[in-house]
Every structure is written in C-alpha cells, then in structure tokens.
C-alpha cells in the first residue's frame, strides 16, 4: 500500500487466515448445475443487467474440478440425484454449495414420487436461497452472505499430518 503523503510503500496488518478468506471470497469460481426454471433467473442474474461479476463471482466453470462453488439451480429428481453427488464429489476442497430456489431447498411445490425433498438430503449445503424462482436481487444478497461466511471461516492452510 502506498502512503497518501509521500507515496512510500507502507504496510497493513492482518491475520493470514482473514487474508486467505479475503482472497477466496472474491475469486469464487462457480459451477452452475442448472436443471429447471430457476436457470432462467440465474441467467438474468449472471448477465449484464444484474451482473454477478461485480462481486467477484462471475467466472463460470463448466467442469466441477475447477470450481469452488456449486450452484444447484432447480429441481433435483431421484434420477438426477446420483449425478449431483458425483459432481459434488469431484469438486476439490475448499468447496461451498448453494441451494438455489424452493425446489433445491425443500422440494418446493413438487411433493411427490419423483423429486428429492431438498438437496441437503444428498450433499451438505451452505446457503439456501428461497423463492420460486428467486429474484436476481435475492441471489446477489445470498451470494454476498456466502462471501461473508467465507471471510469468517477458519481456513485450513497449515500442513497437517494425516491421521492414520
């Protein structure tokens, strides 16, 4: 950091943990697992009008191995469930999951034989976004909440021996 008065290089103090969190929260690579209606609102949110890129989470990766954040957008049926779990397992740590829309949160209005009643029965979830479908403002709000969570989280960066 340059100093205001004389332009010399100054310094800031922080903990390594919060710096890591700061770095991670603004470089969220996302994997949108789009299945249903909410995908339309996701497209709106990601495009120029609402522009998720302003918040450092616009970079979409279509392979789970390069992504940090899994957005489960839409209904997950029992046929789709093994696919979702495979995708989640393929992501590298650290990873976060967002349940996007009522169907992903709880099954929504589809309380029947074909639909999984909430994706938290398959994979762990960090942030739930309500709405059928959620408005883009809600999406942005939820993702900022996720960023706050990442900032506060304890990141494991020290070398740790494997527990045998």
């Amino acid at each position: 950091m340059k100093h205001k008065k004389d332009g010399k290089v100054g310094f800031i103090t922080t903990t390594f943990n919060s710096m890591l969190g700061w770095g991670r929260k603004f470089s969220l690579y996302q994997y949108p697992f789009i299945t249903a209606c909410c995908g339309m609102e996701y497209m709106s949110a990601a495009c120029a009008h609402y522009d998720l890129d302003r918040f450092g989470m616009g970079w979409t990766r279509f392979t789970p191995r390069q992504a940090d954040m899994l957005l489960v957008v839409g209904t997950i049926s029992h046929k789709e469930a093994p696919v979702l779990r495979t995708v989640y397992d393929q992501m590298t740590e650290p990873k976060w999951v967002v349940a996007f829309g009522a169907c992903a949160v709880s099954g929504g209005i589809y309380d029947n034989y074909a639909v999984v009643q909430g994706i938290d029965r398959i994979i762990p979830v960090d942030v739930y976004i309500p709405g059928c479908p959620p408005r883009p403002e809600t999406i942005i709000n939820a993702l900022i909440k996720l960023q706050e969570k990442i900032q506060k989280e304890g990141h494991e960066w020290r070398f740790q021996k494997k527990k045998s």
Binding site: G74, T75, S77, N112
Partner: peptide, 11 residues
C-alpha cells in the same frame, strides 16, 4: 431423458 421428471400429471 427424464432427469427433470417432476410428476406433473400425477400431481
């Protein structure tokens, strides 16, 4: 297909 079968007709 059928990955988004939500049982519309049954419901």
């Amino acid at each position: 297909m059928g990955y988004l079968h939500r049982g519309f007709e049954k419901i």
